[in-house]
């Protein structure tokens, strides 16, 4: 009488259905994140932190340099953008549940110059076949009254008009 015998005799494998009961999570932006998002909402600017020793600019701003552990304070703040560059991109045709999107979305990593980190955002006012790596783009912000200190305060990035 082995595992297999038992399993074949079990008419219906029993199981229990359920979900993780956590109702929701609160993700805070942190001390540096607070500075970044407040600047985005109130001043409409993209804030970064520059580590002199490592010659790297972190976008969004950070409290510390992950390479040398130096604290990055207000004096290390840099304003970057609104112009950036497409570091890489992808074309999304389905939502996270696998349903077809009415219009494909273009997601891209945007960088703001040499020795600068980037972040993920959407591209707009451009057709997918026109997008290419290295393309110059600029941030399009939501109107001030609609901004709520979130990354979506930037509506999307669009190609810089020549």
């Amino acid at each position: 009488m082995g595992f297999t015998d038992r399993f074949q005799k079990t008419t219906e494998p029993r199981h229990r259905l359920g979900a993780m009961e956590a109702d929701h999570y609160i993700y805070s932006a942190g001390i540096a994140g607070e500075k970044f998002f407040t600047a985005l909402r109130d001043r409409g600017i993209i804030l970064a932190s520059h580590c002199k020793a490592c010659a790297i600019t972190y976008v969004p701003s950070r409290l510390f340099c992950e390479r040398c552990f130096a604290e990055l304070t207000d004096s290390d703040d840099r304003e970057v953008g609104p112009e950036g560059e497409v570091a890489t991109f992808t074309l999304v045709r389905q939502d996270s549940a696998g349903n077809a999107l009415p219009e494909p979305e273009i997601l891209a990593v945007i960088r703001f110059g040499h020795e600068t980190t980037g972040f993920l955002h959407k591209l707009g006012e451009v057709s997918p076949e026109k997008v290419e790596t290295g393309m110059k783009v600029e941030a399009v912000l939501k109107p001030q009254e609609e901004r709520e200190a979130r990354i979506t305060d930037i509506a999307y990035f669009r190609p810089v008009k020549k």
Binding site: S28, A29, G30, I31, F64, F69
Partner: peptide, 26 residues
């Protein structure tokens, strides 16, 4: 401490320990 991220708290503790040991991350 809903304000700080976990990363920020971790850095704060690590920095204190390194400072006390007279070491840097390198």
């Amino acid at each position: 401490r809903l304000q700080e991220t976990g990363k920020e708290m971790t850095w704060e503790a690590a920095k204190m320990a390194l400072d006390q040991a007279g070491l840097t991350l390198a």
